[in-house]
Amino acid sequence: MQITRFGHAAVLVEAAGTRVLIDPGVFSAEEAFALEGLDAIVVTHQHPDHIDVTRSPGLLERNPNAVLIADPESAGTLAFGDWTPNADGLVTVVGDVTVRGVGSQHAVILSALPRVANVGVVLSAAGEPTLFHPGDTYEYAPEGVDVLALPLSAPWAKISETVDFVQRVSPGSLFPVHDKTISELAYGIYWQHTMNFGGVEDSRKLGQTDSDTFESA
């Protein structure tokens, strides 16, 4: 499995000859929207840092055969593309990769704000590690996760909850996503607490950039 981060929540997963892009949002690098040869594009929820409605139509034009998978609210409201609604436990097979929906709701930001739909995804294929991208929540902790795309900072999270989530999922390794809300100067505080107390190996083989590419075996 090869994983490429494109800034914040956008992750390209290449496994078993299949290419799946997750959450190309407004904080994502331009390179994410220039990708071609995608087999699927997944949106976990409707917030703009997970789906950029300005740049994504061009991405879909470059990938006309990609399967489009989104949480049910996004699938019903996005004005471009033919999106298939995702749901907790729903399985979509894309090439030789299985995409399984996990969860249903976004984490609570404020009690005054309604919770939107959020459906994370577990990606798996024969002979490959299993990857979990939760979108914006720590609520759901599926079993059998080898690699975790870990939301490192958000208006709905604090570091004790981050570490608790890592411990509950108990993956073999992890890498950070949802990290554009942290300044470069303070980044190490969040990451070191996660590494020191989460008890999980850092998957990355490159430095902290918008477009790290690494392999997980």
Rank of each mutant, 00 (worst) to 15 (best):
M1V: 04
H50Y: 10
S153I: 10
P134Q: 05
S173R: 12
P129F: 09
T84W: 02
V147G: 02
T98K: 13
V121R: 10
D39H: 15
G207N: 08
V102I: 15
D23E: 12
S111Y: 08
L113Y: 05
M195W: 04
I109S: 03
I69D: 00
V42P: 01
V163F: 03
E143R: 10
D39G: 15
K205A: 14
A79L: 12
T98H: 00
T44C: 14
I109D: 02
L90S: 12
T4Q: 14
P114G: 08
D212F: 01
E139H: 09
T92Y: 04
A125K: 05
Q208M: 14
P171Y: 01
V13A: 14
P57N: 10
I51D: 04
A186E: 11
V53F: 02
V26H: 00
G207D: 13
I159V: 13
A141H: 05
T18N: 11
D49R: 02
T162H: 00
V200K: 09
I22W: 00
E31M: 08
S124T: 13
Y190M: 13
G81P: 04
G17W: 08
R115A: 13
H47N: 10
L21C: 11
A126Q: 13
E31H: 07
A154Q: 07
D82P: 01
N65D: 15
S203D: 08
E36D: 11
T181Q: 10
I189F: 14
E161Y: 07
E139K: 07
R100C: 04
A157D: 02
L90K: 15
L21N: 05
L152F: 01
P176E: 06
G101I: 05
G17H: 10
R55N: 05
P142I: 08
V99H: 02
S203M: 06
F165L: 06
A157E: 01
V116Q: 11
Y138A: 02
Q46S: 15
V102P: 02
M195Q: 11
A87N: 06
L150C: 06
D210G: 15
V116I: 15
H50G: 07
E128Q: 14
I51K: 00
G207L: 12
G81Y: 07
D52K: 04
D210Q: 08
V53M: 07
A32H: 10
E201R: 14
H133F: 01
G37C: 11
R115D: 05
I69W: 02
L59F: 09
L35P: 06
G127S: 05
D212P: 13
L78S: 05
I182P: 03
A149P: 03
L206A: 13
G81T: 08
V177H: 02
L174N: 00
H47S: 13
G188N: 11
S203Q: 05
